[in-house]
Design a protein around this nucleic acid. Structure first.
Lengths: 335, 335
DNA sequence: TTGAAAGCGCTACCAT
DNA sequence: ATGGTAGCGCTTTCAA
């Protein structure tokens, strides 16, 4: 077969073509300092001519490492995860590591998929609502470095998160400051650790006001819209604090359908500061998404390369309330 | 070391514990039919006890395949790529393949990174403006299955794209139909094949109107905003057709700053149908993003598993204009 | 500076 | 049904 020539060349062929041993080829292509300039040149020429690239599995097997790490997230829908993953990928690439991704959403064998992934990497980042702590603990117990992202800590495992509770409290207080007294939190605390934290904060900040919890099903726009209709006509809240921006935008749509004016009749807030929030004039909370991803990647890299294991770290990155028009009248608000 | 017990166990240890050969372990853990039920049980018990997972590199080396494929994209910013990648991941997972991602943006060694990636996968999907055709051809020449996504075809390589030209033409004609006569296209056709296609379509649809090309630098909101200011005061166009939604949203912001009313004084259109476009009332074009990703993954899987190589395929997925308020007055427009 | 050879952990073929 | 064993392609001592 003529095509055969195009197939992957091995180190043996390069060695033969260059007239040296495979050990020398291996060195010439990486070690630098252990090989004559002349030899290296000859080897490199041969490698180029054969279009040689070392087999990754073979290297990994010999070296005992993958030069890759993985990140597990529920979904990539909405800018949140995408930004996090991007920050992660960039940081991982900077430390010479490829990244494998795994979306668990809509997968019944998530645990198995994560375990499989664990076998392909030198370290793993696991986000929020993806797999049980048990699975995480099992993998971490293997000795595989793991960092948790936007998720409640597991014993002995690093955790990076964005602040939820404190900022949520500030947000609720802001609403109460506006005179709102019938608050509704729309979102299911059982949905994710993030939502739970936000709800906890809102409770703390809603002193002196009525606070109703409405466990909306999903975290997308349509879920928010659907949940809003009955909620707005029944509870008659004067402020709806949503688990995230998409839900909030859905509420905005539903309110418009019902002829409710925002913020006069109803205040609405979200979380994430999507681009759409800006154009919808939605008061929300901004999170350092890329930084979350980058931090996770950095920590993982540290773990992978560290000599002797240090204690588990935890970090909560700062978030901030972004005031726009939807939470009540302000003198002036920039889009 | 006590911890040692937690470290990865090998097939040899399982074999010893179960009192069988490694060959039997290998079979028991996969083949099913070649092993006594009793033996299998014993092996599985041993494997479980040792928390054994076969080494991926070792398997890959022995089997000659990675059970993984990769996708290369410029960036993950904005929902577009994220959605595509998500569709890709889901489809790849369905065919039992892990996915490696690589963002080339802001990386000077993109070509090298892509070549490295090529050595880690059974197939590769390469998106738009990431690496030169030369690199793609080189990799495809290796025999590695490759599919191009949102990118001009390369000889002998599969290509999946979303329609640009036809829909762009329809969009331009729609604007002309509204009475607009001084059109400006904001975006750099050299930026990506997609933008080039859109511009070509706009030119075809702008018959009878003046069309100016303004090569805006980036494809993000700030780029659009910055480019818009001088453009709007100098050219005085009555319609700006933007390369994508983010740029268009930037133009909207700039127009507001200048006191221009949309659409009365100025029509603006985007591309992508971001969530924000809906709330900004932006006329735009919707693309089947997930389907793009899923199609690429499917094709790649076919290529990887096919017996004898078939001819290169090409497909252009349909896109559609989404009319909102920003392109001119209509009777009624839903958000 | 270079070569020979022993693994790395697994799969699959050949015997039994 | 099970065991023995030859690779898979590379890295890395150990000698020379």
């Amino acid at each position: 077969m003529a095509m055969k020539a195009l197939s992957k060349a091995t180190i043996y062929q390069v060695a033969q073509l260059a007239g040296v041993s495979i050990a020398t080829v291996s060195r010439a292509l990486r070690d630098s300092e252990l090989v004559t300039a002349e030899t290296r040149e000859r080897v490199q020429a041969a490698a180029r001519q054969l279009n040689f690239t070392p087999s990754r599995p073979a290297r990994s097997l010999a070296e005992g490492r993958h030069a890759a790490n993985g990140i597990v997230f529920p979904d990539l829908v909405g800018p949140y995860y995408a930004e996090v993953v991007l920050g992660y990928e960039a940081a991982a690439a900077a430390s010479g590591s490829s990244v494998l991704i795994l979306a668990t959403n809509g997968r019944r064998d998530a645990a198995a998929a994560v375990r499989d992934l664990a076998g392909r990497v030198d370290g793993l980042t696991v986000m929020g609502r993806t797999v049980d702590d048990e699975v995480v603990a099992g993998i971490a117990g293997t000795g595989l470095p793991v960092v948790l992202l936007a998720r409640d800590p597991v014993d002995g495992v690093d955790t990076v998160r964005a602040g939820n509770t404190g900022t949520a409290r500030a947000l609720a207080e802001h609403l109460v400051g506006h005179g709102h007294r019938r608050l509704t939190f729309l979102g299911d605390p059982d949905d994710s650790p993030d939502v739970a934290g936000r709800y906890a904060g809102v409770r703390a900040g809603a002193k002196g006001a009525r606070l109703t919890l409405v466990r909306g099903k999903g975290l997308d726009l349509e879920s928010g819209r659907r949940a809003a209709a009955p909620l707005l006509t029944a509870d008659k809240p004067d402020a709806v604090i949503c688990a995230n921006d998409e839900v909030a935008l859905g509420v905005l749509l539903a309110a418009a359908d019902l002829g409710l004016r925002v913020p006069e009749d109803l205040a609405v807030t979200g979380w994430d500061d999507l681009l759409a929030a800006r154009f919808a004039g939605l008061t929300t909370v901004r999170q350092p998404m890329r930084e979350l991803g980058a931090t996770a990647a950095h920590w993982l890299h540290k773990r992978i390369t560290e000599e002797n294991r240090t204690a588990a770290r935890r970090r909560v990155l700062a978030t901030e309330v972004v005031i726009r028009g939807s939470c009540g009248a302000h003198e002036e608000v920039h889009p």
